[in-house]
Deep mutational scan, measured.
Amino acid sequence: MATGGRRGAAAAPLLVAVAALLLGAAGHLYPGEVCPGMDIRNNLTRLHELENCSVIEGHLQILLMFKTRPEDFRDLSFPKLIMITDYLLLFRVYGLESLKDLFPNLTVIRGSRLFFNYALVIFEMVHLKELGLYNLMNITRGSVRIEKNNELCYLATIDWSRILDSVEDNYIVLNKDDNEECGDICPGTAKGKTNCPATVINGQFVERCWTHSHCQKVCPTICKSHGCTAEGLCCHSECLGNCSQPDDPTKCVACRNFYLDGRCVETCPPPYYHFQDWRCVNFSFCQDLHHKCKNSRRQGCHQYVIHNNKCIPECPSGYTMNSSNLLCTPCLGPCPKVCHLLEGEKTIDSVTSAQELRGCTVINGSLIINIRGGNNLAAELEANLGLIEEISGYLKIRRSYALVSLSFFRKLRLIRGETLEIGNYSFYALDNQNLRQLWDWSKHNLTITQGKLFFHYNPKLCLSEIHKMEEVSGTKGRQERNDIALKTNGDQASCENELLKFSYIRTSFDKI
Rank of each mutant, 00 (worst) to 15 (best):
I306Q: 03
C239V: 01
F275D: 01
I185A: 04
R41T: 12
G37H: 06
Q204R: 09
R69T: 06
N309M: 08
R92T: 05
I40T: 03
Y259D: 14
P36G: 15
M83A: 03
R141S: 05
D159I: 08
D72A: 04
I139D: 01
I62G: 01
F115W: 15
H291R: 08
E124K: 06
L289P: 03
V265E: 00
D261S: 03
R46M: 14
C235T: 00
R41G: 05
E97R: 12
Q303F: 10
I185N: 13
V281M: 02
E57A: 08
C264T: 00
T85C: 06
T68L: 08
L90A: 03
N308T: 04
I146Q: 04
V121A: 06
H226S: 07
G192R: 10
V144A: 04
N43K: 09
N282V: 05
A198K: 08
E207N: 01
K80E: 03
Y134N: 06
E238T: 11
C280P: 00
T194R: 07
S225M: 06
L88I: 15
I312R: 05
R113W: 04
S323P: 14
E238Y: 05
K80L: 07
S284M: 13
I312P: 06
Y87Q: 00
P104T: 01
N175L: 12
D159C: 04
T211F: 12
S244Y: 06
L289R: 12
T45I: 09
N308E: 13
T45E: 15
R297K: 14
S77N: 14
I139P: 01
E207W: 14
N42I: 04
H307Y: 09
Y30K: 02
P313R: 10
P249V: 02
Y272K: 04
E71F: 10
D169V: 12
F275G: 01
L50W: 02
Y30S: 12
I82H: 06
R92F: 05
V121T: 09
E57R: 03
N170E: 06
Y94I: 08
Q216T: 13
S296A: 12
I84L: 02
L289E: 11
G132E: 01
A198E: 15
Y94K: 05
V305P: 02
T267F: 15
S98D: 03
P249Q: 03
C219H: 07
H236M: 03
D165I: 06
Y259P: 00
C228F: 03
Q216M: 15
P334F: 09
D288G: 11
P249N: 03
K191H: 03
H48I: 08
I158K: 04
H28R: 07
G142P: 00
L50S: 02
Y118V: 02
H214S: 14
S284K: 12
I56K: 01
C234L: 01
N135M: 15
T199E: 05
T211S: 07
V126I: 07
L90C: 12
E314L: 04
I40G: 00
F66H: 15
A198N: 13
A190N: 10
C255N: 01
F115I: 14
G183N: 04
G95Q: 09
S237F: 12
V121H: 11
Q276Y: 09
C331W: 15
P36W: 04
I82Y: 14
P316W: 01
D169S: 05
G232S: 12
L81T: 07
F78C: 03
A190C: 06
P104R: 01
K217I: 13
G95F: 05
C196P: 09
R113G: 11
Q276G: 11
Q216P: 06
L120S: 00
V144S: 04
C235G: 01
A190Q: 14
P271D: 01
P316S: 02
L233M: 05
G32H: 05
D165W: 12
M38F: 02
Q303M: 13
I84G: 00
H28D: 10
V108F: 02
F116Q: 07
E238P: 01
C335V: 03
R263T: 00
I62Q: 00
C219V: 04
F73L: 08
P334W: 05
E57G: 03
